[in-house]
Design a protein around this nucleic acid. Structure first.
Lengths: 295, 295
DNA sequence: CAGCCTCTTTTGTCCTAGACAAACAACGTG
DNA sequence: CACGTTGTTTGTCTAGGACAAAAGAGGCTG
């Protein structure tokens, strides 16, 4: 048998669309149209899985499923917008770095990044190289010119570099910051960038890694006598769930511990009581300065 | 309202038990017994969530749900076995390290680890400190004497240290190894340990980070002209799914690229065609040596 | 008594089809 | 043009039923 097919769990894993969604789309929109195996279970042919992945990518950019599912497969790919990229800072020529990733030259990429780090200093490196590069890689991934594994490799290597830089910084004295993300939020590059900037400012960062259950975040904050809990939400995180999560966490957290939240996922969020929203690096650094003067 | 309660999605997130399982347990065993909100949806009280988490922990150790769900809450905790720990190597006194984590002394822990690294050398450090320590932390987490966030902190700090050490090694010349894990497998500490050992032996390691979709693993292997793809499965990964995943990957992978698999999750696995199972570090290093002599 | 085969029970995942609320778009009004 | 109201879209929840893979139990044989 040379036509491999996917069961519903495999499709959920590969596309990020939940089983419920896959079934309800089939019912409502007539797509996908999986075959059935001897046991009556769905078998998705590879081309449909591919189309579903494309649809998911377009949805992450704001398109709505009702429209996308009516569009034939070959027209879908033309929808891929060349996303408006604000021109990168004049100092940064990122094309070289992007090209190195595209050529799968891990060593060359690491080397080039090290060089830039040395030239720009850690703060400049984060703000003028890592942040815009991450954005460009995200855009490239969205419009399909980067493969998943290329994005992964970039993320992994960059994380390593940042962590390495952080560990070479002296121990802090400022507020004790606990950095983590909630379950189902795996993206930590943004968190690492903030950690770098905060550590540079002399804050005392406690990195807990991603995906900490809410109650454990609260417990950890108490145990570590943290002043601030900092969370990050990526753009891919379902927006609708964020307010509920934050309120629950805010409730579980002692009142004297602040809750700071950043990342691409909170851009369109309305303010919440007792939660400080930090859409960008500048706001984050301001918040840190403000915290210090308040003591 | 001062009795917070969880909807089914929150419980899935916090316990790791799927919605289907939560519903079917309720039907079959009469536990859990969530209330219903105005809309007829389940609301789990916190103590039941806690009990579910305990049950999940015990299941990960091999207990079966049918028994556990019949046991009243207060007797459950007594079931926690003090897991048979093979006595740690004579050279290693890990209690100091464990105590530092338990005291939430991140800086002290990092310092102590650095010292051990300097004393033991990288290979000795991985085999005699990191590996047994990981095992002890896992055991402590299982029997409840470690909190989730303590385990996370340990993992995060240790990952940083290993990555830092890896990056200080010279570029390799040996086989090109692509290291990653499949979707839903987030544990990468084991993978990092292996990467360290392989890098020490001069292999050319390409770390892709965790959770790579199967087809992208195959694409990445081709793009990077890898000789070997190395995967890792933790004990927590559902055993039943592993053979299927490996077969699918093996099929997608060119025949001349080897597939090596390690980690606690494969201990009880039966051999598979075209897949090399590496239950421990020794086997992994042997495999590397064998690969080299074969060329 | 260890190993292997078979039968039974347990257990997770899949199925259908209906319901509803939150988010979004579209419209009318001040 | 801002703002409330109405309609539509969309994800997630619910209920039981079904089945196959895995685990355990028993029985047989070397």
């Amino acid at each position: 048998m040379n036509t491999p097919s996917f069961n519903i769990a495999a499709v959920e894993r590969d596309t990020g669309l939940s089983k419920d969604v896959l079934r309800v789309w089939e019912r409502r929109y007539g797509f996908p149209t999986p075959e059935r195996d001897a046991n009556g279970e769905r078998c998705y042919p590879p081309d449909q899985v591919e189309r579903l992945r494309l649809i998911k990518r377009l949805m992450d950019q704001g398109h709505r499923p009702g429209k996308l599912l009516g569009i034939p497969a070959d027209e879908l790919s033309q929808l891929m917008p060349r996303r408006q990229l604000r021109p990168p800072p004049a100092t940064a020529d990122l094309t070289e770095l992007l090209a190195l990733i595209k050529q799968h030259d891990a060593a060359g990429f690491q080397h080039a990044m090290q060089q830039r780090l040395a030239r720009q200093g850690l703060q400049g490196f984060v703000q003028d190289t890592v942040a815009p590069l991450t954005e460009q890689v995200g855009a490239a991934w969205e419009d399909g010119s980067f493969e998943v594994f290329e994005e992964h490799l970039f993320t992994e290597l960059t994380k390593r570099l940042l962590r390495q830089s952080i560990s070479s910084l002296p121990a802090g004295h400022g507020p004790r910051l606990l950095l983590t993300s909630v379950p189902n939020e795996e993206h930590v590059l943004g968190l690492l960038m903030v950690e770098t900037l905060f550590a540079l400012e002399g804050a005392d960062c406690i990195p807990l890694g991603p995906q900490m259950p809410l109650f454990d975040i609260a417990r950890a904050a108490r145990a570590h006598a943290a002043d601030i809990v900092a969370l990050s939400f990526s753009q891919a995180f379902p927006q609708r769930r964020i307010p509920g999560l934050l309120l629950q966490l805010r409730q579980a957290l002692p009142a004297n511990i602040e809750l700071w939240v950043g990342g691409g996922g909170i851009a369109r969020l309305s303010p919440l009581d007792g939660v400080l929203l930090l859409p960008g690096f500048a706001e984050a650094l301001d918040a840190l300065a403000a915290w210090r003067t308040a003591r």
